[in-house]
Computed example of a mutant assay.
Amino acid sequence: MTLNISYPKPNCLCARYLARFLQGETLKHREADSATGSYRLASHVHYLQEKHGWHIERREVTEATRDPTGRAATFMEYWLAASLIEWAGIQGQEYVEKVLELEAIRIAERLAATSPTADDNPDGTDKEKPSTIPALSNGPDNGSQ
């Protein structure tokens, strides 16, 4: 199989989707939204096809929604053909490893930035630490004038 395929930069959202496709995953919009917070799966699939040459398979799916009226939604489901995953071979799997490694690093950095450290929270509670700066006084408050 001779294809004109390229890989997006490993630190972008398109790369995260391509990595999952290269692992044989099928993605729907709900799963993509849950995993990445992006409602734009179709846009990224289009980009992978038009800019990078990947032929992404698709089919229309209809599933029930959480709408209390019982409404169903129709949307696309995307995946790579097994032959294309096989064609990508070792290079494709090395790309997957790099993308997932970068994703894990960014997740860990974000968690570290938003999580209290042991020094900030030694007793494990969410109580605010008392200020170590003495309160300013507007004058004597002990009546010793």
Rank of each mutant, 00 (worst) to 15 (best):
L18D: 04
V61L: 05
Y78I: 00
D33W: 07
D67M: 00
L80Y: 02
G70M: 08
A35R: 13
A42R: 06
A73N: 14
S43Q: 15
T26M: 07
S43P: 09
G24N: 11
L48A: 00
E50F: 09
A32C: 12
A81C: 13
Q49N: 11
T26H: 12
V61Y: 06
R30E: 12
G53A: 09
E77C: 14
A64S: 09
L22V: 02
S38N: 11
Y47T: 12
W87Y: 14
E86P: 02
I56D: 01
I85K: 06
I56W: 01
E86A: 08
L27E: 04
R71K: 15
L84D: 06
S34I: 11
H44E: 06
H44L: 05
W87G: 07
H52Y: 14
V61M: 06
E60Y: 08
Y39G: 13
H55D: 12
I56K: 02
A72P: 14
V45W: 01
R66K: 12
F75M: 13
L80W: 01
A73T: 15
L22W: 02
Y17G: 04
G37H: 07
I85Y: 03
M76P: 02
D67I: 00
T74P: 05
H52M: 05
E50M: 09
Y39A: 14
L18N: 05
H44T: 03
H52R: 04
E50G: 06
H44C: 05
G70N: 05
P68V: 13
W54Y: 03
L84C: 04
T62W: 04
E60P: 09
G70L: 11
A64H: 07
A72C: 15
H52G: 04
T62D: 00
R40H: 11
V61T: 10
R71Q: 15
E60T: 14
R20C: 06
A64T: 06
G53Q: 10
M76N: 07
A42L: 03
V45C: 05
W79F: 12
G37W: 08
I85T: 02
V45K: 02
E86G: 02
F21K: 03
R66E: 07
S38D: 12
Q49A: 07
G70E: 07
E31G: 03
S83T: 10
A42W: 00
H55I: 12
A19Y: 00
L84A: 09
T26R: 14
E77D: 14
H44F: 09
R71G: 08
Y39N: 13
R59T: 15
Y17E: 04
G37C: 08
A73M: 11
L18A: 07
T36G: 11
E25D: 09
Y78V: 01
S38H: 10
L22P: 02
I56S: 02
T62H: 02
E31M: 10
R40D: 07
R30D: 10
L84W: 06
A35N: 14
G24Q: 11
L27M: 09
Y78G: 01
E60C: 13
F75E: 04
I56C: 02
Y17I: 01
Q49W: 13
L18Y: 04
R66C: 08
H52P: 03
A72E: 15
A81L: 15
S83P: 07
Y78K: 01
L80N: 00
T65H: 05
R40V: 02
